[in-house]
Design a protein around this nucleic acid. Structure first.
Lengths: 141, 141
DNA sequence: TCATACCTGACTAAAATGGTCAAGTTTAGT
DNA sequence: ACTAAACTTGACCATTTTAGTCAGGTATGA
């Protein structure tokens, strides 16, 4: 299970983007300044977000990034997936004789992790970027 | 956020223990054989479980471990806590000017992680060892 | 007294994390 | 045409965490 700062940064950056891209593309430099994330690291993250069609890039001077969908249609699950935050709890080794091979003899706790994954994913599937932006506005910008 | 195989092993071992400790203490050796976890690693884990009063040890020949409470009273949250699996998503750095200091200027996604933590913890607080043992029985031993 | 089993702490290889650095390419504006 | 802003790509790396192993104990029932 991974849920680290890369995922957090991705979300922070996208919320920032959602709030400021009304008119012009937003540069990583601006996001970096506002959110306190290094540009170099943001570049890594945005490269992935772009590949997953969450943002579009505008190159050249005055360029930057823009959301490629409505914030309502961008769920957290999409974001995490894009930056390789896998909500996989623990893998059962394929080759182990004991324990779980995923087929006949499920390991003693296999169902548990499945349940947990569903539990967490359902949370992420409900939350959209729009929700977060609203939440931010409510809590006094 | 950490949810790794140490936590998984702890749960596996305890479910095993819950099923076999009816009469005698269960040795780590037996658990090791049944669950495919190295004895040395189990010792680390059980040391922590013991400190957190989840199991009791019986030393000497024919010794082993016994649950120190009813399986119904051992929640997953207790187990994870014992083996230092913190369900902490991401920490906001204390010293960073930007972002979150936990007080006045909550970082843009702070509420989100709080919500998520609660969501996950509630799952762990509901599940007891007994639930897992039952679940195992249902799914054909 | 000896075999079994717990107990403790040091150690470590490999992977993940959280980045940095360098060397580009693209394009708006002058 | 030039230049500066901004995206693009990929290599690199220090630190921390993970998932253990190893060695040398101590306790105790038979």
């Amino acid at each position: 299970m991974k849920l680290t700062s890369k995922g957090r940064y991705a979300v922070m950056a996208l919320v920032d983007l959602a709030r400021f891209d009304n008119i012009n593309p937003v540069s990583l430099r601006d996001i970096s300044l506002r959110q306190g994330i290094s540009i170099d690291y943001l570049e890594q993250i945005f490269s992935k977000l772009k590949k997953n069609n969450i943002v579009k890039s505008v190159r050249g001077n005055q360029g930057g990034y823009v959301l490629s969908k409505n914030p309502n249609d961008i769920k957290l699950t999409n974001i995490f997936h894009a930056v390789d935050e896998k909500v996989k709890t623990v893998q059962c080794k394929k080759d182990s004789k004991k324990g779980c091979n995923g087929k006949a003899t499920k390991c003693i706790t296999h169902n548990l992790w499945d349940e947990l994954e569903n539990h967490i994913n359902s949370f992420f599937e409900k939350k959209s970027l729009e929700d977060l932006v609203q939440n931010k506005k409510e809590s006094r910008l």
